[in-house]
Design a protein around this nucleic acid. Sequence first.
DNA 1: TGTAGTGTATTATACGGGTAATACACATCG
DNA 2: CGATGTGTATTACCCGTATAATACACTACA
Lengths: 127, 127
Amino acid sequence: MNVKFNNRDPVYVQVIRHFKEQIAKGVLEPGQEIPSRRELANQLKINPNTAQRAYKEMEEQGLIYTEGNLPSKITKDELVLKGVRKELIMEAVETFIYSVQSIQVPLEEVLDLVTEKYQKSQEEGNV
Amino acid sequence: MNVKFNNRDPVYVQVIRHFKEQIAKGVLEPGQEIPSRRELANQLKINPNTAQRAYKEMEEQGLIYTEGNLPSKITKDELVLKGVRKELIMEAVETFIYSVQSIQVPLEEVLDLVTEKYQKSQEEGNV
DNA sequence: TGTAGTGTATTATACGGGTAATACACATCG
DNA sequence: CGATGTGTATTACCCGTATAATACACTACA
């Protein structure tokens, strides 16, 4: 478990994002058990209530489910799981497009920059 | 003056971003006078202090300058002005690349999505 | 059986960022 | 001269977030 926090967004939001990324990458698989609230809080050095808040929201979004008082698990709903990846991608793309268009960067320049940065970042191992 | 605010970022940050976009697009030219703090506050329906905070930070960044108690003006430093556009673009690209790589979206898919969204957004007139 | 670990809920507190309210000094201009 | 508009500074308040401290019901398991 390795999460780097920034100071801009609430911790619980960043925790949710982290899980979504893990799901999108396939690291977390359907039905897989995830750390308990207290366990997660220990690992990430955050308050159990903050972990609880993140899990609660993920449960409301159908990302995880809980049976009895057993550790929560990743949903088995393939539709939801597929949706996570698509949601993350779309959100990133739309935000990006909005940004570059708001300062009128032509498509060709955008594509060049993306390609360049993508490969450079790849080489440096930022994955 | 037309700024749409979101609830996530502080208003003063969004105000700064707005001015940077205007500068990057060339709408605001070197030496051009900008609204006074109070005037801006009126136009955007925000608190004068919030406008002040935005202007103060812009002044610290060298984007605007103030002589006496006259309305501030856009800097004439071409280097700074050029830098604004580059800064906005780089920031957008880097954030975007980080997002898509964190969920391992291949470059081809990224480029396709960007191209598609860019053109669609263009057609809809979101510029 | 009982202990430890689970999810869940409630209440209180502290802190910081953002915003609001107000005041001051100065200069321009009618 | 006085009023208005400018930049600037100080103080105070609101609210979301994060944390802390408990509490309760349930269950797996030694």
